[in-house]
Deep mutational scan, measured.
Amino acid sequence: MDPFVVLVLCLSCLLLLSIWRQSSGRGKLPPGPTPLPVIGNILQIDIKDVSKSLTNLSKIYGPVFTLYFGLERMVVLHGYEVVKEALIDLGEEFSGRGHFPLAERANRGFGIVFSNGKRWKEIRRFSLMTLRNFGMGKRSIEDRVQEEARCLVEELRKTKASPCDPTFILGCAPCNVICSIIFQKRFDYKDQQFLNLMEKLNENIRIVSTPWIQICNNFPTIIDYFPGTHNKLLKNLAFMESDILEKVKEHQESMDINNPRDFIDCFLIKMEKEKQNQQSEFTIENLVITAADLLGAGTETTSTTLRYALLLLLKHPEVTAKVQEEIERVIGRNRSPCMQDRGHMPYTDAVVHEVQRYIDLIPTSLPHAVTCDVKFRNYLIPKGTTILTSLTSVLHDNKEFPNPEMFDPRHFLDEGGNFKKSNYFMPFSAGKRICVGEGLARMELFLFLTFILQNFNLKSLIDPKDLDTTPVVNGFASVPPFYQLCFIPV
């Protein structure tokens, strides 16, 4: 058959498939802009700032609406009420993970971030239990974070109060905490193996944040037939998995079943207990991918939040002064901060919360999916439909947070200066898919920041009023603009 005829037939089939998918069930789905064949609503979305586009569309179609990214149908949730109703009140029905062709290629359905069903539930339950087990290797997770915080302070001392970009050092600290939990080992910041790991993690975040990856996920045929950065992403992930597998083999040879040292040991012990169960989800494949998931999810998000926190503290020296006064009063100079201190430091706690609220790190979270046909607000959402959640619409709700575009710790303080919780605080998402490392991340943010401010004054290279804190939105995360500062020993 003539190649031209084959091409026309293929394009015609794709067009018909697109029209059929977009028209099927439209009477039951939430409203939304009319999609174009094949490309859907992509032309109506700013790929570099999806969150802003969703906010604009919500003003037209309401808090629940339908979009098509290519052939992929998505239902968008915008605003606290619908997000709570879906992710919390109907948590089980909305607990699936959205379709990610690239991740599915890399992870093969294993791990904790992109798995679904029984596998996801069992691996998540085990990971939560293990991360909360403060007795691994007779050292609590808090001990590990405190140790890394001391190392971080010593690295900052080496800058000798000269101007520096904190990106690298602030990236090393949370990565080392995860390494300590998974591998029972922290690395020197100049260790070549550690630097290679950091390089792969950072490069992957840069790649994932590009519009090209959005295109690959919406048109998965590209993955096999086109060159691009997605190939580098898959190569980096394969490198990390190979490295983790080597460490798993080392653990198998040296493990003491009665004295687990780290996450890998705990997983291997669980595998041993379930070795007679042919349906067990505790396999080497799941261990390797879960460890890679924890490394990827637990490094860049925390380091970016820390980097943004220091920029905001530079911009608002009056806030920094209040935090340091609270540190001096509650902790002093002669001991290290600990998590028990947080309950006695409402202002510092409010500042950490406000940093996370203000920066809105992951504006749309990772997409969910419905696990069955769901009736939601008089609409029928078919099983498997991807759910896109606007966390921006919750964290920047102007009824809950007056002047949401302003950095103001009073958003989390009552009139008496006591810490005030808010149900709208969802930087880790909400419901059954809430970030498994939430507790660890909150511990790291509090301890790293208090250790830094206990030991250093922060000095800006320019007038604080002239510092730009506008986030650089890159399609996946909101990151701070480049800046330098000086760490002046107190």
Rank of each mutant, 00 (worst) to 15 (best):
F94H: 01
L131H: 03
L67D: 01
L234H: 06
F183C: 08
D265R: 01
I207G: 05
P404C: 07
M406S: 11
I39P: 03
P471V: 08
Y379V: 03
R442K: 11
L485R: 02
Q146Y: 08
P367T: 06
L440F: 05
N107C: 07
C175I: 07
N202Y: 10
L311R: 03
I381M: 04
Q340D: 12
C175L: 14
G111P: 03
R73A: 07
D2Y: 13
G228I: 04
K249A: 11
N286E: 04
P363R: 02
P382N: 03
R124H: 03
I213F: 12
G417E: 08
F263K: 01
L7P: 06
P37T: 02
N176S: 04
V145G: 03
M74H: 09
R442S: 13
V145A: 05
R26K: 14
N423Y: 10
T301Q: 06
F94G: 02
S336N: 14
R139E: 08
S429Q: 02
P174S: 14
L71M: 14
A297D: 04
K399F: 12
E154C: 07
R261S: 05
V370Q: 00
G98P: 15
D165Y: 02
F412K: 00
D191F: 03
N116Y: 05
F114Q: 09
Q279S: 15
P464Y: 13
C172Y: 15
C13F: 15
D188M: 09
E241H: 12
L77T: 01
Y347E: 01
M339C: 15
L395G: 03
E241F: 06
I207F: 09
Q356C: 09
H411I: 02
L311K: 04
R119A: 10
N398A: 12
R261I: 05
L201E: 03
E93V: 13
L57M: 13
L16W: 09
V319W: 10
M240Q: 05
L67V: 13
K185S: 14
N455L: 01
A291T: 13
R73S: 07
E300T: 13
K190L: 11
K158Y: 09
V145H: 02
E155L: 08
H368N: 02
I215G: 05
V355E: 00
A103T: 09
D2P: 10
T305V: 08
P63Y: 00
P402I: 11
V319A: 09
V83A: 04
F456V: 02
S254H: 08
S365V: 07
E241N: 11
K322N: 11
P427H: 02
F168L: 13
F263T: 01
Q252I: 14
T159E: 07
G98W: 10
L57H: 06
I269Q: 08
Q276M: 14
Y189V: 06
G109P: 04
P63H: 07
K270G: 06
S95C: 07
F419C: 07
T392I: 01
L29K: 05
G137H: 08
N231H: 14
N204G: 07
C164A: 09
L306V: 08
F110Q: 12
C10T: 12
H230V: 08
G439H: 15
Q279E: 11
E444A: 03
